[in-house]
């Protein structure tokens, strides 16, 4: 009985997959973007992956708010980290990555080779990753902002977690990172200590500036924190085109990036107005920081913060809505 049932289901699957065996795309839940057979009033479902930093969430929430309230879509915001989200294009669990930080390797794999994703234009945000210290340290030790001198001050950065080396505080394990290679190649007497989240970085930075504690940490712009706490970037050897080509040999700073949007091929083909909106979405670092700040410091949920921004910036988003 059971075997027959199983065989039946397999046969069904086989038929669904067009007899050529099952591919990853022939996932049952791959209903991306396409309107779902009229039964509900929703125009369709859009899945925007949520990457773990608040700036990203700000963008995602504004787009989600507009999709819901202006175009009548259902929006899911699954918590999926950067690289897994790219894989999600393949099996239909993700339609949109709303803020992509570079990732040329992933673009090559998923856009050029697998052809499951396409670029959907810039978000308008300029992004740059770097190493930062609280301002008081730069004031007190003027030469500390040059990475060549970091070893001199390594003792200052020692913690119980980093042992006899200086600590370089890192964020979520999924973030874009050259830290290990940089420490190795610049021969720094530092150890990467993973705080595990953006929140750990923010908290560390705020405490360091307020209580005059030493801290070297990984951070990025755009971020609302720069409007609240004075931070100074440590200068790594300047970025030159291609200096980060081999991830093992990186010995230079991060480049400034045009953050962009990536969507699944399927969504681009069948997403209709939702795709148009995502494609048109474009705003400034200040816009994002405002929303992110509301979400983090003013106790608003993503939806509330998005609503506030949308109500205040009608002209901007009107331009994104497809005609």
């Amino acid at each position: 009985m059971k075997i027959r049932l199983l065989a039946g289901l397999l046969a069904l699957g086989m038929a669904a997959a067009g007899c050529g065996g099952a591919t990853v795309e022939s996932s049952p839940s791959a209903s991306a973007g396409a309107p779902q057979g009229g039964s509900s009033s929703s125009a369709g479902t859009v899945k925007i992956a949520i990457n773990p930093w608040v700036g990203y969430e700000a963008s995602a929430n504004v787009v989600a708010y507009l999709l819901k309230n202006e175009l009548g879509y259902t929006v899911e915001l699954p918590e999926i980290k950067e690289q897994l989200a790219w894989e999600g294009f393949e099996n239909g669990s993700v339609d949109v990555i709303i803020e992509n930080w570079g990732h040329p390797d992933l673009k090559k794999t998923f856009i050029e080779e697998k052809k499951v994703a396409v670029e959907a234009g810039s978000t308008g945000n300029k992004g740059v990753i770097g190493w930062y210290i609280p301002k008081w340290m730069a004031d007190k030790y003027p030469d500390i902002t040059d990475s060549k001198n970091l070893n001199k001050y390594a003792d200052l950065f020692k913690t119980s977690e980093s042992g006899d080396k200086g600590q370089l505080l890192f964020g979520d394990p999924s973030y874009v990172s050259n830290e290990d290679a940089l420490i190795k190649n610049l021969k720094l007497n530092f150890k990467v200590v993973v705080g595990g989240s953006e929140a750990a970085l923010i908290k560390g930075a705020q405490q360091a500036q307020e209580q005059q504690k030493a801290l070297l940490f990984y951070f990025w712009d755009p971020h609302w924190l720069f409007n609240k706490t004075q931070l100074v970037r440590v200068n790594l050897p300047a970025y030159t085109e291609g200096c980060d080509a081999d991830p093992k040999k990186v010995a230079c700073d991060y480049p400034e990036m045009d953050l962009d949007k990536i969507v699944s091929k399927k969504f681009a083909d069948t997403g209709g107005k939702a795709y148009e909106l995502v494609k048109n979405f474009n705003w400034t670092n200040d816009d994002q920081n405002a929303v992110a700040n509301d979400m983090t410091n003013n106790g608003m949920t993503g939806e509330q913060a998005a609503k506030k921004w949308v109500e205040a910036n009608t002209a901007k988003w009107q331009a994104w809505i497809p005609k």
Binding site: L10, G13, M14, A17, G20, A22, V24, S26, S27, S29
Partner: peptide, 16 residues
């Protein structure tokens, strides 16, 4: 094509 993806498909359908 003929084994693992079907398991995936089967479990996926069950979940759906």
């Amino acid at each position: 094509l003929y084994f693992l993806n079907y398991i995936r498909l089967f479990v996926g359908s069950l979940y759906d």
